[in-house]
Amino acid sequence: MNNKDMKIHLTVDVWAAQKADARAVRFDVFVIEQKIPVELEWDDMDEHCLHAVAYDAAGHAIGTGRLLPDGHIGRMAVRAAGRGKGVGAAILKALMAQARQRGDAEVVLNAQTQAEAFYGRYGFSRDGEEYYEAGIAHICMRHVFS
């Protein structure tokens, strides 16, 4: 960890174990902060995914993300207090490691365009044109494991 990284504890588990904390983070970031309609945030895929949840030193959930069965990484969210401190990177790396461990050849994600440089630092490259989802500009990004 470098100077800007905060001390976190990260868990990766099924939805039943992660649901309360993952939902709370996603609600704060997507529904409250980004004003995404709540009905667009929840889908029936959560129960089929592996979920990562990051906790700060005090035990508060500060970030989350999920890995779908098809190798998509999604619902990456970090509360404001954890941004720029290595929380998103830790979540992303943990989900990528899970995908690689189970034998996925690649991981794909739909990134908000403002996060393209972040994902690029971890080997993701743009795949296709910009599009809008919930009124926010997104791009598809892909990382092929070597």
Results as ranks from 00 to 15, higher is better:
Ala61Asp: 08
Lys93Val: 15
Ile36Gly: 14
Leu67Ser: 13
Met45Val: 12
His60Tyr: 05
Val29Lys: 12
Gln98Met: 13
Arg66Ala: 12
Arg83His: 04
Lys85Glu: 02
Ile73Cys: 07
Met45Asn: 07
Val87Leu: 03
Ala90Arg: 02
His72Pro: 01
Val87Ser: 10
Thr64Ser: 14
His48Gly: 08
Gly65Leu: 01
Ala80Phe: 01
Val87Asn: 08
Arg66Gln: 09
Leu40Gly: 14
Val53Gln: 09
Val38Thr: 15
Thr64Ala: 14
Ala80Ile: 01
Asp28Phe: 03
Asp70Arg: 10
Leu50Tyr: 00
Arg83Trp: 03
Leu67Pro: 11
His72Leu: 05
Gly65Ala: 07
Val25Gly: 07
Gly82Glu: 00
Leu67Gln: 11
Leu92Trp: 00
Asp28Pro: 01
Tyr55Ser: 10
Leu67Gly: 12
Ile73Phe: 10
Glu47Phe: 00
Val53Trp: 04
Ala58Leu: 07
Leu68Glu: 07
Gly82Met: 03
Gln34Trp: 12
Arg79Tyr: 02
Gly86Arg: 01
Gly63Phe: 00
Gly71Trp: 11
Asp70Trp: 04
Ile36Ala: 14
Val87Arg: 10
Gly63Gln: 07
Ala22His: 04
Leu95Arg: 12
His72Glu: 08
Ala97Trp: 06
Ala22Phe: 05
Trp42Val: 15
Leu92Ile: 04
Val31Cys: 14
Ala90Cys: 02
Ala22Leu: 06
Glu47Ser: 10
Asp28Trp: 02
Met96Gly: 05
Ala24Asn: 09
Leu50His: 00
Trp42Met: 14
Val29Tyr: 10
Asp43Pro: 11
Asp43Asn: 12
